[in-house]
């Protein structure tokens, strides 16, 4: 399973995500985020596409800012990210801003969901992103 819930996170929800590529890593982050926030859709919906752009000096910061942006869109536009449609990540390790993400995501409105629990923030506690032999592994604890 690409993402699993971490058992010893008590008051909040932690996920461990494994993916064979950076794009899949971001895709799994979106899936885990959606699975916490949404129990189910109330009816078939036409998703709303939105672009998310994030710049960062490290991969960890890129992921932190990406999740923070998903939370921001949820709270200000009333849209929950459902799936990652396209994701372009530019990496230039010599530049000051080393990572640029330009992603297209599908979102669903609150009016179309039976909600799970809210995600209010992403924590730095246990937060990590590592390159592994098989791709990438990330640990994210969502504040509930």
């Amino acid at each position: 399973m690409p993402y699993v819930f971490i058992k010893d996170v008590i008051a909040d929800i932690g996920v461990e995500i494994r993916a064979n590529s950076l794009n899949n890593l971001f895709s799994e982050i979106v899936r885990s985020f959606y699975s916490i926030l949404v129990q189910r859709l109330t009816a078939p919906v036409n998703p709303t596409p939105l672009r998310v752009k994030v710049k960062a000096v490290s991969l960890e910061e890129l992921i932190f800012k990406f999740v923070d942006e998903l939370i921001f869109i949820k709270d200000t536009k009333g849209l929950v990210s459902q799936s990652l449609v396209q994701c372009d990540i530019l990496v230039n390790k010599k530049a000051k801003v080393k990572y640029c993400l330009d992603a297209k995501l599908n979102f669903v409105g609150f009016e179309n969901i039976i909600a799970g629990v809210d995600i209010k923030a992403v924590s730095l506690h246990r937060f990590s992103v590592k390159q592994t032999q098989n791709g990438y592994k990330a640990v994210i604890v969502f504040d509930i």
């Binding site: 921001f72 709270d75 200000t76 629990v117 809210d118 209010k120 509930i144």
Partner: peptide, 18 residues
């Protein structure tokens, strides 16, 4: 500005979790 945008949308709400 991000905090302001979230704050404007949620005043007088209970929230979720506990």
């Amino acid at each position: 500005d991000r905090a302001v945008a979230r704050g404007l949308a949620q005043l007088a709400t209970l929230g979720s979790g506990n």
